[in-house]
Simulated scan of single mutants.
Amino acid sequence: MNITEIQGYAYFFFTVFLTVGLYAYIYHLYKNKKDESGVDYEDYSNMALKDDIVDTPVKSVSEKEDK
């Protein structure tokens, strides 16, 4: 076993490790959509697409302010 074979195996396992890590991170992001306060920030992703004046707002504003 020479150095080129070791480099080939290391490259293969490193690529598999990074691929599994990437998919685990993507799964983690979609599993935990809400943060600790319960806000789902995925709703805010349509703000750039639905920015016309007659579109409904992402988050409604109440008349009373919480004091």
Rank of each mutant, 00 (worst) to 15 (best):
L22A: 14
I3C: 01
T19D: 00
E5Y: 03
F13H: 03
K50I: 02
N46A: 09
P57N: 12
E65Y: 14
L49S: 15
F14K: 08
G38I: 01
T19G: 07
S60G: 01
F13I: 15
I6D: 00
Y30G: 05
F17N: 08
S60D: 09
D35L: 02
I53N: 04
D35A: 02
Y30R: 12
K67V: 13
L29S: 05
I26L: 06
Y30A: 01
Y30L: 13
E63G: 09
K50L: 06
D35T: 00
Y23R: 03
D55K: 02
V20Q: 08
Y41S: 03
V20D: 05
P57S: 11
D51M: 06
K67C: 12
E36A: 06
T4E: 14
T4H: 10
L22N: 05
E36W: 02
K59G: 00
Y27W: 15
Y44C: 02
K33I: 05
G21P: 11
E5W: 08
E65V: 15
I3Y: 04
K67S: 13
V61G: 07
V16E: 11
Y23V: 10
S62R: 13
Y23C: 09
E65A: 14
S37Q: 06
F14A: 13
T19Y: 02
L29P: 01
Y41A: 03
V16W: 05
K59L: 12
N2L: 00
Y27Q: 11
F17E: 08
S37D: 09
D35C: 02
I53K: 12
V20W: 09
I6G: 00
D55L: 00
T4W: 11
Y41V: 04
V58G: 08
G21C: 05
M47F: 02
H28L: 06
Y41F: 14
V16L: 09
V20Y: 04
E65K: 14
N46R: 12
T4P: 01
V58A: 08
Y11Q: 14
N2V: 02
Y25H: 06
L18W: 11
K31M: 06
D66L: 12
I26E: 02
Q7I: 11
D43V: 08
E65S: 14
K31S: 11
K64A: 13
K33M: 09
T19F: 10
A10F: 01
F14E: 15
A10C: 08
T15E: 05
I26Q: 04
T19C: 12
S37R: 08
N2T: 04
A48H: 06
M1P: 07
S60R: 10
E42D: 14
N46V: 03
H28D: 13
N32A: 02
N46S: 13
S45T: 10
E65Q: 06
Y23K: 02
I53P: 03
F17M: 11
T15N: 09
E36P: 01
V61P: 01
E63W: 10
V16C: 07
N46H: 07
